[in-house]
Amino acid sequence: MASLNTFGAVFTFAIELERRLSAYYGSIGETHLSRAADKRRKKLERVRRENVVEITLEPIAGLDAADYALELNDGSAAGQAAAAGIAARFYREAAPKINVRAAQRALERCGKEHAS
């Protein structure tokens, strides 16, 4: 798995993560969680579009997609908690790497939603 070394790589990973989570929750009948993940995905797509600042694009170091691999075969409460925990950790660790405050805030908020 590749390193998440650019603004776009971080946000595209987050968008894909939420897409997978939405499908996962949908498949186990957790409709409201599926909808919430889909809402976050749409928000992240907007944030990626609106907050890419050409003059402050800088390399990002220290984030690797392999560290946030989701295991989505387990639909039990424990499996759901594990998936949400990985997502929350990803957002918590990714947000400080982003140098645009509005984009950083969006990641922080996603992390809080997964942690709650």
Binding site: T6, R49, V52, V53, E54, L57
Partner: peptide, 29 residues
């Protein structure tokens, strides 16, 4: 342009050779 943001960015990458972030930054500006 907002609705076609990703499509335009990908066209810019393909004909110019820059990165997706740079293309998105260009479309944003």
């Amino acid at each position: 342009v907002e609705e076609n943001f990703e499509k335009v960015s990908q066209i810019v990458v393909r004909e110019h050779g820059k990165t997706m972030d740079e293309a998105r930054g260009e479309v944003r500006r």
